[in-house]
């Protein structure tokens, strides 16, 4: 197997383990959380947090696990992973001076970029599915019932968001030669986006409004995905990937 595939697989394994450990801890904590939910609700200061607490009280264990796994875990760790996996793709090669040997082989640029994109994208989304698949089992251990299908639907929805972020980061990686700088800028922007989710007036400008507990509860309750949201998120990822292919054609080693 290709060296970059091995390397990405290793990073993806680390990211999966962190997500899983966080998930296990969160689910194990659920009985305690449920018992003291009123106290937690009273402690919630900002309006957005109060809304989340109401959703958790009403949604029970499903709201709690989607909040923990998707809204908290994947929106933060998954976003970071999407950015970090993407920025190394081209900018990382340029930064360490290996871009020329990478391009000197008798392989088309479209092929090598597509391979890199697909491997990275899988590394970002597969851990979401893998860890989410363990939710029914983990919940069963604490006497709660959560079904696999809604968790998989939520994983698809979450993956679309991560795919969009990955696509944008990949595009900037194709243009640049400083992966750390690109990663820091994008991480700052996404952290800012996550932070404004909690601000009442600014919350509507947060991209994470599309992957919050309300969205996941809607998917779980209806058993259906939101095709419009999915199309937009996957579309953004694909448009930026197409842009990467165009930019990469003229990339100088």
């Amino acid at each position: 197997m290709n060296r970059s595939v091995w390397q990405t697989a290793l990073y993806a394994l680390g990211y999966t383990l962190i997500l899983e450990v966080l998930l296990i801890a969160a689910i194990e904590f659920f009985p305690n959380f449920e018992e003291h939910i009123e106290i937690f609700s009273q402690m919630a200061g900002v309006a957005a947090l109060k809304t989340i607490m109401i959703q958790l009280e009403e949604g029970g264990v499903v709201a709690y696990v989607t909040g923990q796994q998707f809204f908290k875990g994947c929106n933060t760790l998954g976003t970071a992973a999407a950015i970090l996996f993407a920025v190394g793709a081209v900018a990382g090669e340029a930064h360490r001076g290996t871009l020329e040997i990478w391009l000197a082989r008798p392989l088309s640029r479209n092929r090598i970029l597509t391979e890199r994109f697909v491997v990275g994208a899988l590394a970002v989304v597969v851990p979401v599915f893998l860890t989410s698949a363990t939710i029914p089992y983990l919940c069963d251990r604490i006497g709660e019932e959560v079904f696999l299908k809604p968790m998989m639907l939520c994983s698809i929805h979450q993956s679309a968001m991560l795919f969009a972020i990955y696509g944008v980061a990949f595009f900037f990686s194709t243009l640049g030669s400083h992966p750390t700088r690109i990663a820091l800028i994008l991480l700052f922007i996404t952290t800012f986006e996550f932070a404004i989710y909690m601000i009442e007036q600014a919350t509507y400008y947060s991209i994470f409004r599309w992957t919050d507990i309300e969205d996941f509860m809607r998917i779980c309750d209806s058993g259906e995905l939101n095709p419009k949201q999915l199309a937009v998120m996957f579309g953004i990822g694909l448009v930026f990937f197409a842009g990467s292919l165009v930019a990469f054609q003229r990339r100088v080693p």
């Binding site: 001076g97 290996t98 020329e100 040997i101 000197a104 082989r105 008798p106 088309s108 640029r109 080693p253």
Partner: peptide, 15 residues
């Protein structure tokens, strides 16, 4: 790509 299939290239970079 077609050209690189018919030749080999040793780059100047040693990274």
């Amino acid at each position: 790509t077609a050209v690189r299939r018919r030749c080999t290239y040793m780059p100047g970079e040693t990274a």
